[in-house]
Amino acid sequence: MFHRDLSSFLALCLIWGTTWIGITIGIERVPAVMFAGTRFTAAGILLIVILSCRDGLQLPDRQSGVRLAIVSVLSITLCYGPMFWGMNHVSSGTAAVLEMSMTPVALLCFAIGLREEAWSAARFAAVAIGVVGLSILFLPDTVSAGEEGTSWLPILGAAAVTWAAISSAFGSILARPLMAAQSSAYIAAWTNLIGGLVLVLGSLIFEEGAAASLTEIWEWEAFAAWAYLVVFGSLIGYTIYMRLIRDVGSRAGSFAFVSPVIAVTIGVVFNSETVTILDICGMILMLGAAYFSMRGSDGVTLEGPAPQSATKISSET
């Protein structure tokens, strides 16, 4: 079990550490929320088709459907909508620190608050070390963001990015009991589809140029980036993430300490970006935090607690 979870975790870190390239390319050419919404919707449809070919089409039942809808909106719609809006008003470094650091913190707090996991001082210490590492890695950009003046927009933007991480974490923990009755792929499929469709609707209502982008032929770079995100970022990556949430609980959030290291490394290798000694120190702290967060206090990797029963799902939805 440990080796399977470790392999899944490393695969998730690698996949989500490379998706920033596709996101950057895509949102430069297509309205950001529409780009995300169509990506998740397409991934959801593809995964549902794949599962239907294997097991037949299985629609969510009424009892679990309410929770699944809530999970979808929290994990996808209320995450990516505010996040893209907020990133327009804060520096990339500030957004990275807020979103990446809040993800594991919120996951752990919600898991404990909803009694999915027990309190662990060692886990909180590991997460705290990771947050320090993130701050060190993105410190120059974060500091420069404080020179933008007294406008409320940077504050609201930072709040939106923070909310995005909290919303996603809450949705992820709420999804865990659903996987007592359904596979992680099934939950990922419907979450992508429902959350993506609501994102598309929101984009059509609020985002400038959204409707036109559905009828235009995208540049090949944007389409290639979109296809990569559909297949790897959402269809494969999100399914792996759901499986890790089921099997190791909030420890899955430790990807937030590894994926930025992969992204920075790719930037150095392929884009001739530079790193400083301070950057390297931050990345070492982040990798160490991920390592200790994925392990128990006795040095042996632990599996997360078993998901709640299907009976409890119906009583809580």
Rank of each mutant, 00 (worst) to 15 (best):
H3G: 05
D5W: 11
S8Q: 14
L10T: 06
G17Q: 09
T18M: 12
T19S: 11
E28S: 14
P31H: 08
A32V: 00
M34C: 07
F35Y: 14
G44H: 06
R54W: 09
G56Y: 00
Q58T: 13
G65R: 14
V66P: 00
R67T: 08
L68G: 11
A69E: 03
A69C: 12
V71W: 00
S72P: 04
I76W: 12
W85K: 09
L98T: 01
M102H: 04
T103D: 06
T103E: 08
I112N: 05
I112S: 02
W119E: 12
A121T: 06
A121H: 03
R123I: 05
F124T: 07
A125H: 06
A126M: 07
V131N: 04
L134V: 01
S135W: 06
G157M: 05
G157D: 11
I166T: 06
I166K: 05
I173Y: 05
L174G: 11
R176N: 03
S184I: 12
I187F: 07
A188L: 09
L193I: 04
G196M: 13
V198D: 08
L199V: 00
F206E: 07
E207H: 04
E207S: 00
E208C: 03
G209Q: 01
A212N: 01
L214C: 07
T215R: 11
A222N: 06
A222E: 09
F223Y: 13
W226E: 05
W226R: 10
A227V: 15
L229R: 00
I236K: 04
G237D: 07
T239R: 09
V248L: 10
S250Q: 01
A252D: 08
G253Y: 03
F255P: 07
S259H: 00
P260Q: 00
P260D: 02
V269F: 12
S272V: 10
T274D: 12
V275M: 15
T276A: 01
C281V: 15
I284Q: 08
A289S: 15
A289Y: 07
A290G: 09
A290V: 10
F292T: 13
R295Q: 13
G296R: 02
L302S: 11
A306Y: 07
A310I: 07
A310Y: 09
E316C: 06
